[in-house]
Design a protein around this nucleic acid. Structure first.
Lengths: 190, 190
DNA sequence: TCATTTTACTTCAAATTTTGAAGTAAGTTG
DNA sequence: CAACTTACTTCAAAATTTGAAGTAAAATGA
């Protein structure tokens, strides 16, 4: 039975696909006590996917709001995310694709808008003239800095103590694992 | 200094926004040992957001692939997610909005396609004739069941042992927290 | 060496998804 | 019962994403 629980993601009691974690007393109780959870509740692949979709939607609209506050009208939140993905290094379009699992034509489109808006510079690489080298301009760096500043308030709320930090790290790491599993599955089949 | 670390999401050493958790020896080491992490690395709000975006993209394309395999041509992955959000209960459009943080007109649009495809039934509520009651048809339930079946393989890979389950739960719970914080911020300001 | 293939991207058109403004019909309230 | 609110729907426009086709440069191999 335990084997089945571990391997199938069986739903027990309140764990109906579509309900929130807040409805699961086991999980929340466990969090406070720092003990191993009693595994009567299992989070499935799909519950996580739906949660990720929701959270992603929330973040996008938050980002849109922040950008409106900053008076940014020429690019949207998706483009801002590309900007954040570039960060403070110079990289090629290919490297950027890997960073965000974008599709090539999509990034090309965004980079065009970002270049038109003066947020990035693109220079053909000397070594390989096919390869475009991308970096943020002053303006691009400024937008990123402003967004990071605005993000500070969220970091303070989200990471109040060591326990919060621990959970954020585990969440990050677990999402990275999902990324790998889902990505490999898409390429090679599961 | 520790206070600053805790409250600002300061990036230390390898923790440059845009790099992967796999690059953080501290996190990975901690996972195996079950000990408290040494907090030299902090996951910021934005790193998480970018990870969520990436993972979401991966899942959407995986879902698209699964649906193609199942021969579903009349609706896309977004509509399938709505179907999964409905689950096996009857609910109103408003309840569905809450479940996925959708925008009303968006759901209306999806529900129309799903109804046209025969995946859902919509009946006006007897009590309140403005309110539409939604539920899956046989065909809709079948699609959900097929998708859940396909998901079984992922559950097996992702939740191999009690530790995996624990991390999945923490990830789920942490994402739920992000959802609340980001959602409240959007409505009331932080 | 030079034809062929591969890589690194871009372009464009079409599809999909999301937004926002405006509408409708049914309930609710003073 | 007039005015307001709620629960949705519709529609057009915008934003995002995909996919096919193209271009130019680099690598390969006979």
């Amino acid at each position: 039975m335990i084997q089945k629980l571990l391997h199938e993601g069986v739903e027990v009691e309140t764990s109906i696909d579509g309900y929130y974690a807040a409805d699961f007393p086991e999980i929340t109780a466990e969090k406070q006590g720092h003990r191993h959870p009693v595994h009567t509740v299992v989070v499935t692949h799909f519950e996580l996917a739906r949660m990720i979709e929701r959270v992603n939607r929330r973040f996008a609209s938050l980002l849109r709001t922040e950008m409106t506050k900053l008076g940014i009208e020429d690019v949207g939140p998706a483009q801002a995310m590309v900007l954040m993905a570039i960060g403070d290094v110079e990289l090629s379009v290919g490297e950027l694709l890997d960073r965000g699992h974008y599709v090539g034509s999509n990034i090309s489109y965004y980079l065009k808008q970002l270049a038109d808006g003066g947020y990035i510079d693109r220079v053909a690489s000397q070594r390989d003239k096919r390869s475009a080298r991308i970096r943020l301009t002053e303006k691009g760096e400024q937008l990123c800095a402003n967004l990071r500043d605005a993000g500070g308030a969220y970091n303070r709320v989200l990471a109040r103590d060591a326990d919060d930090l621990r959970n954020l790290e585990i969440a990050f790491q677990t999402l990275h694992r999902l990324e790998l599993v889902w990505g490999n599955a898409a390429r090679y089949g599961i």
